[in-house]
Design a protein around this nucleic acid. Structure first.
Lengths: 186, 186
DNA sequence: GGAAATCCTTGATCCGGATCAAGATTCTTT
DNA sequence: AAAGAATCTTGATCCGGATCAAGGATTTCC
């Protein structure tokens, strides 16, 4: 099972002092069952979560139907970014796709720590830069018009997603119907 | 005409000290004519530019044809983000759509200043957060399937784009052909 | 372990935006 | 100001992915 302190030290490369300062405030544990919401639409999400177990999907409703815009799996962070950064009601909602375990840190605590530890601010700045680069990468992936190629790109970049997530959601994430995904998978 | 020092103080809200530290290193001026490249594909872009005059478009080639992924206009910054952040060759290229004036600061100088001035790092972190939010907003805009609605969203969010940029490029940016844009503009 | 729900697959049809084409308009350049 | 280039518009056709439908395969959950 994934552990938060390893994540802070190995993924984010935080020194002991900063890592334990974060850990001290990072206490809230949460369990979800399949279908439970981590964040509902319109709710101000006050937490940044680390996933220890399970999978989640981030949804956005447009024109009456739901679209998948992202996934979460163990040893990664998950949050409604706009809500967390702007401290405003979330347009997204986040749902557990199976039994899930998370740990959270409150937005207030988090940003207070940023002010306290300059090194933390640098790390967070870099994390946000990475997230931005990820979005740009994804924008390019979606530029690809042919469904077959979009599938191929995801297979190359994140093969594990196909192990973890039902195809139905992957199809939505790739902007196609489950039928089209099915027809182009082999 | 837009000025850089005003931009630093009013848009980024930098105090005098940080603003003038930046200005001291922000000297490089550049003129482009219609069609000139600010950044070529494969080139490592070493500068962050502020636009004083003119318009530019950011392109990405996929499947043999070019796609517009962004625009630049006066009193804003422009750069190939992945290239600047990662210091790697750019997959994008940036081209002037008309006569254009810019001022640049080198990547090295810029990141050196970040280390020197903590307040600058905070401001940059917030700017990157904003850029990330902008991308997310744009992802949602592109989720909209109907071309007519995509046009409407851009009209609401950035009406000035339609004044500044030829429709041809806007169509590409909105992921449709110029014909479709034309047919749905009125 | 077995019923029920969910998900996946395959087939048939349809439709909206892309493509191709050609003329009209606007912008650029000297 | 005029020639030339680029852009915009309108029409006709086409095609690939969405939609609708139904049977089969997996998962979920008590």
């Amino acid at each position: 099972m994934a552990t938060l302190s390893q994540f802070l030290q190995e993924q984010l490369r935080l020194p002991d002092e900063e890592a334990s300062a974060l850990l001290r405030h990072w206490q809230k544990a949460k369990s979800l069952r399949r279908g439970d919401f981590l964040t509902r639409k319109g709710q101000v999400e006050q937490y940044l979560y680390y996933i220890t177990e399970g999978t989640l999907a981030i949804f956005y409703d447009i024109d009456e139907n739901e679209q998948v815009v992202g996934f979460g799996y163990p040893d990664t962070l998950i949050l409604s970014i706009p809500s967390f950064i702007r401290n405003r009601p979330s347009d997204y909602y986040i749902q557990a796709l199976g039994p899930t375990e998370l740990r959270g840190i409150s937005r207030t605590d988090f940003y207070r720590l940023l002010e306290q530890y300059p090194l933390l601010e640098t790390t967070w700045r870099q994390a946000v830069e990475e997230a931005l680069l990820g979005r740009i990468e994804r924008e390019i992936d979606l530029l690809t018009v042919s469904p077959r190629e979009r599938i191929q790109r995801l297979l190359n970049r994140s093969p594990h997603v196909f192990q973890l997530i039902p195809n139905k959601y992957i199809a939505s994430y790739l902007r196609m119907t489950p039928e089209t995904l099915s027809r182009n998978m082999r």
